[in-house]
Nucleic acid binder design. Structure first.
Lengths: 214, 214, 214, 214
DNA sequence: GATGAATGAGGCTTCATTCAT
DNA sequence: TATGAATGAAGCCTCATTCAT
């Protein structure tokens, strides 16, 4: 759905500017509660009341901290994808060759999805389901620059002959799809063991990209 | 999301048993309206009122033909995936070698998604978003046997050495993910040109499966 | 609820005037279906659709024969209580002494309730539940003259010293209540055996009215 | 309909646990409004909107305090019959002889019906008309133990020779019917003067039970 | 900093009734 | 004679949000 998040723009509001300790904690707690709620009953039924219940807090307190339900959901999505983006970004830091960078990227991506699966599944469901007031789906807003890092790795690899040449958009999209299989898996069964996938997805992807000796 | 549909079970009720001409037409019209509605404003906001508005019909008339909103949505999903399943099933009919069967399957799949994109995008959004009364997501119900054909093709190909050996579940899932890239594309931009993808996805997939001479 | 129905006024419309054979049969059939429906699911849920279903007929056909749901229900009530009224009226015909008349009345009443219990229970539920368009409950319309026969028997008995003297309204009401215990019983359990009640209610009532040697 | 209520079970939820002052008041107000509504327009038409209108409150506020219309109605019934049960229970407390106990019981019952007539008429109509989601009428749930006190008094009286021996079920039922005449009266005319009935019902009942010197 | 109270908009569904055939 | 089609009104309920405290 959303493979990375290079150079994440600063969140709309100042990140943690002027937030009291308790406020930060409450916001964290509410995001966690929202994750749990979406996972348990789905975006469609994740009402403020349900989220508040799971946070052991009054419904109106949610709005007190987040101005609106949408703001909470958006921050959840932002937070989750920022973490994923940071993970992959860190993983390729200092790595030189396109092949090694792709390997690092993919492994970090899959590892992060594996580790943070609950939050990611919730965030993905929100991105798919939520629409802003004017009807725009979130994935049209969130997307784009998220795949920039992956795209740049693949482009570099094609340039230097590591990867087969093919339209960069197609390659990026297919690579993204392969990696996102991990998300589909945990979506369908939260307890899935991702071991097998993690073992085979990378060779699969490398071969697909024309790297013969894998 | 849903790569094929071997031997689709007959819909719960008799298919078109004793339906008047006008009833059949209305049901078709309502399903189309539902597709349009979901595509325009999303599952979450696709209320009976919105669907009825697009069908130029009273809200209560929708229920007159479908008993419930859920019934309408479910029939939409059933119809759409049945057509997709039939398309791929037909395409491999009489084809012998695993490689040729996979090629036929993938081309039919992509062609169908390309041609029927609106309906498929709507159906996929419903499958992802809808929950039955007891909270079960639809994709947990709909799934399973839908990938049976693809799985059997891959299994046969591994058996006879056409494809590299790897866990069948992983292979099927990754192949599905590659093909479903087409759905993701039309989801994000309904007017997408799938030409490039259709040209490259199959070689990409074949290489990934270890078929060298592609 | 409603002890008898002396000198029933003619039903609003001419009784059977100019009704074809089939029309009469249909009306009968629909009344029976309405009785069954009310008994099975209660007045509140006894919709035209449910009644029609039990009559194996289209919903619109009900209205075709009865002009409105209310007309059907009212005719049901009318029919049922007319039969009860006729039964008791016949039973006292030619009987002279107040005591014997009361005995005849009570036995006929209880026997009729016992025999026609389904229809009576349904009619009573309708009388209790239904309100005309202006909000008047049916029992305020239906009642009154229904107790005239019982009242006249008791009045005669008090006059000639058979029964203890007491306000005629109170006596009639209490006697009615005693007899209506049979209805309450079948209301609560449609299969009730009324044998015990039928054996003891009359002595109970006679003693209550001051007839010592019972 | 419901002659007493020995040892009323505690309401499902804690009685008034943790209810704020305003909540208690609102709930009371809503129950009163429901009583008024049912009396004015009948159970069948007593919608949330009508109840809310009479309580000068928004429809949704009703649900805010009661979770569902059914919960409100059930609490109304519970409250009303609990009060009636308590009244009769208190009245016989410390009274020894069956005759005196029956007198106390009957007088308390009639006095309570007389005093609380509006609420009782409403509660009775609800008990008769309401069906739970699965179709069960309320009187099949509410009933049973409500007549236990009356039954025990009559049984004791038969045992010690005060009352004529007769099947206890029949006796209890008929006694109940006699007393419930008061309810029927106020049902049909809310302003009825119960004076005459209260003066004659008890002697009537005693004679019926074979107590000669009344 | 946090909440209980309250609401209005909107969602799904039921239903008696009308009408053309 | 009978019905399928269609509807509008109304019913119950959910929910995000506002506000006074």
């Amino acid at each position: 759905m959303c493979s990375d998040a290079t150079e994440r723009r600063a969140p709309s509001k100042a990140p943690t500017a002027g937030r009291s300790f308790i406020e930060t904690a409450r916001r964290r707690q509410l995001i966690d509660a929202a994750v749990a709620t979406v996972n348990e009953i789905g975006y469609h039924r994740a009402s403020l009341a349900e989220i508040a219940k799971r946070a052991n807090i009054a419904k109106s307190a949610v709005v007190y901290y987040f101005a609106s339900k949408e703001a909470l959901l958006l921050e959840l999505v932002e937070t989750v994808f920022a973490a994923l983006g940071e993970a992959v970004l860190t993983s390729v830091d200092g790595v030189e060759s396109p092949a090694a960078r792709l390997r690092a990227y993919a492994e970090a991506y899959l590892a992060h999805v594996d580790a943070d699966r609950h939050a990611i599944v919730a965030a993905v469901e929100i991105v798919i389901s939520h629409r802003t007031a004017d009807g725009t789906p979130l994935y049209l807003i969130e997307d784009d620059q998220d795949t920039a890092l992956l795209r740049s790795i693949l482009a570099a690899g094609m340039e230097d002959g590591t990867f087969r040449t093919m339209p960069i958009g197609v390659a990026t999209g297919l690579a993204e799809s392969v990696l996102d299989r991990a998300i589909t898996l945990v979506q369908r069964a939260p307890q899935s063991d991702l071991g097998e996938l993690r073992a085979h997805a990378l060779p699969f992807l490398f071969r697909a990209l024309g790297v013969a000796h894998v």
